[in-house]
Design a protein around this nucleic acid. Sequence first.
RNA 1: GGACGAGUAGCUCAGUUGGUUAGAGCAUUCGCUUGACGUGCGAAAGGUCGGGGGUUCAAGUCCCUUCUCGUCCACCA
Length: 728
Amino acid sequence: MDKRYDHKAHEAKIYSFWEKGGYFKPKTSKKDPFIIIMPPPNANDDLHIGHARFIAIEDILTRYHRMKGEPTLWLPGADHAGIETQYVFEKKLQEKGKSRFDYDRETLYKMIWDYVQENKEKMEGQLRALGSSCDWTRNKFTLDPDIVKIVYKTFKKLHDDGLVYRGERLINYCTHCGTGFSELEVDRVEKTTPLYYIKYPKADGSGHVTVATTRPEPIFVDTHLAVNPKDKKKKDLIGTKVLNPLTDVEMEIIGDSYVDPEFGTGVVKITPAHDFNDFEVAQKHDLPIVKAINSDGEITEAGGKYSGMRTKKAREAVVVDLEKKGLIEKIDKNYKHVAALCYRCKTPIEPMPSEQWFVKVKPLVEKVRGAVKTGKTKFPAKRFEKMFLHWLDILYDWNISRQIVWGMRIPAWQCEDCHEWTITDGDPPSKCKCGHKELVQDQDTFDTWFSSGQWPYAPLQTTKDGDFERFYPTSVMNTGFDILPRWVLRMMMLGIYTTGEVPFREVLIHGLVRDKEGQKISKSKGNVINPLDMSEKYGADALRMGIIWGALVENDISLSEDNIRGQRNFSNKVWNITRYVLDKTEGKKLEFFGPEMPKHTTGKDLFKDDVYSRFAESTKKIGEITKKLDGYKLNEAGEIVYQYIWHDFADSTIEWSKKFVDEDSEKGEYTRGLLVDLLARSLKILHPFMPFVTEALWQITRKEIGDQTGNSGLLKEKALITAEWPKG
RNA sequence: GGACGAGUAGCUCAGUUGGUUAGAGCAUUCGCUUGACGUGCGAAAGGUCGGGGGUUCAAGUCCCUUCUCGUCCACCA
């Protein structure tokens, strides 16, 4: 054996030994299965350090349960990631001076498809490099035809059950991405914007009413103002008329309780087409909804002289015109308000009236709430349960249409004659209910979360016969808190709706990976830690241990290269422990107390007492580690393993052993036996954390001294990955 | 405006139901080199557990209050 552990010489070989040997596949056993569906990484980029963390977490759990003899499945996959991928791809096009409008739908789709396939393969290689023990024979992609079929079926079922409707609603529209979003895909950022106080002349010429607004540009389509009927000072205005400051058209003042008398001037202009509150008010009062802004972010034809201008320019022009007319009372330039931005590209979101497919969430949400309250799905970290339940309270109907090409095209066809929609589970209908045969498919695709919301069951229904029955509901869903509403919530809604059971029994939330100063990692800060570079430099084992070390799973973690280097040193320590044990035992006679705990001789034989207590210490530590793993305290489990192997086994027992280990006496034989026993146990308990070095050492140890261990049962398994987890 | 989390050694973090001298890793200081490993070994130093008050025989741990960070939510034009 080399003096040092060289991870490059072993990792790839060990991985292919596992994969070719079929060790990642769930075995049959009477025990309850353990299954994690991997949150499918987006197939549009390399894995980043955040992926490395969830890979470490899920692989530790998977390997631990596999060693406990449970039928264990970690199911890998990749996400087409609709808007995300289209955004990344469009950036690439931009670099080449092109845009999505230069290609027809089919060509663009094909180009993104090829791009994604290439990335997907690369990403899968990276998952392997980090030691992921997922079952590649069950690998799935969200756009696999059988998955798409399932998603379509769900859509049709929802529609047949009256839970999907098409309606004109205000949606969150990003003029840059060219698509609408659900409210969960909108970022809110505090911004300082001018607040304009605009005078509306009263129609009877008796003065004016002042309105405060941050958005003067759509004033020309406004037809109403509103005040609070409970506002003593303002309520007399209800029913009176003012003139539109830009068009001089008469506008009526209405009363609605949503107006806050304390804010601004207590008078609000109503722009139903571009503001969610105003839209609601307009529906209540049956006001006209006139679009002032189109999907490119330009003023519509209704805007007269402003039409064609982008909103920002139009605003400037409107303000200039109002100033000329002397209708601006004042401008508060330090007004802070919360702006809605596209979560993808940070362009301001325009509320826009549009026809889209919506899912009624109320009935689905109630079942989700029930499942959480009754503990069918648990959150080991309680605070996330609270957060989750809060989300349930504030959910709106879910807009699932996206105006992008990349994704699953919605299986809905509109009749050119009667304009009725026909929904199928994928195949185009031959004719409309009215008998007409000319039907046109909806141009839109599904929200990615609509398909990934079905990920806990869709792959299982397509992999192997019986998988779904065997493995659903899944054991643990591990994901970041940031997609708790976007993803976990959708999976719960759709999972319960489609299968009648919760999609997972526990939701294990993990925190962010931060740099060593605790700062968020971002390209712009230049503090990116590339997991593959780290793995290349210090070994995948060191990276994995480093990335779970020092913080509970649910908390943010600060990762430093020093930390990873420390773990590399640990992997080397284990290597040298094995080297020592093999050096002292190879070809020598070994004696074991046997697989059962040796009897304590209580002072009659001091040597045997020593052996006993060293063995007992390991058993005690194994018990602690097992308990920590069962409670998802991975860092604490890892730290005990580290502490035990380095300080108890190496620093204490190995140093002690040097007194007897070379003797040909009974003491020598028992000492050597103890070393082998503790080595085997150490490799086992470390394996989930550092799979490569431990498996490499297991193989070497078996080869060197496997036939000396007699019927002790130590080292009996051909592969450590499926060796039996020791009893604590 | 609400809700939540964090504040423990120089740094990053553990400390389950309150119970001996408060722990780990990294960093620091000192000392060890033929004999598993210098990616090593041995030792040391370092904390009035954010501040204040309370409950208790006993509080980092429970209660109240306060300060400082951070996160999430919210339609205030």
